[in-house]
Amino acid sequence: MKSTLLTRVLPALDAVGYALAVVAMAQTAVMILIMMYEVIVRYGFNAPTLWANDLTYMTNGTLFLFGAAWTLRMNAHVRIDFLSTRLPVRLQHLINLAFYICLFLPLIWMVGSSQASKAMRAYVRRELETMSAWEPIVWPFYAGITIGIFGLGIQVIAESIRHAIGLADPKAVRPPGAGEHVQA
């Protein structure tokens, strides 16, 4: 059971988060190119676009959610752990597990399903972005936000499993808060 989780289930769940992060990386590059394009055509050719602004915020507004899952996996969401790391490791796992199960997963579920129904409604009604000269359809943007939220949810499930394993056998997983060091 434990080894199935550690060798099959968790890597599969992690892979979802990483795949979303790769999309986010591509989005980052695309977003910068869009802004650059707008600058060039506006300044150089007196031909500003009506779409660059909308496309930019839509890209930026989804990419940070696409990357949120992998950021959790890499433990790059900042914690203040100078007190908590003094607690027994099992207790730390219990705290994180309880937080995820009792608070965070219900939160993700409620926010995510509400965002999903908004995306659905926008798709059915063919809603347009209202305050824009371009007026693009908004459901892809809403759908992106929804995917990002549920992607984070999947990673939270994976981390919950890790904390549950850690609660039973602290040596089987890394201690809470430990992870890759983000070097920027």
Binding site: M35, N60, G61, G112
Partner: peptide, 20 residues
């Protein structure tokens, strides 16, 4: 309500300065 606040953040054009 909370997903509305996500949307509010996601729509802020100014924040697209952060990744670059």
């Amino acid at each position: 309500q909370l997903s509305g606040m996500i949307l509010q953040t996601a729509q802020q054009f100014l924040l697209s300065a952060v990744p670059p």
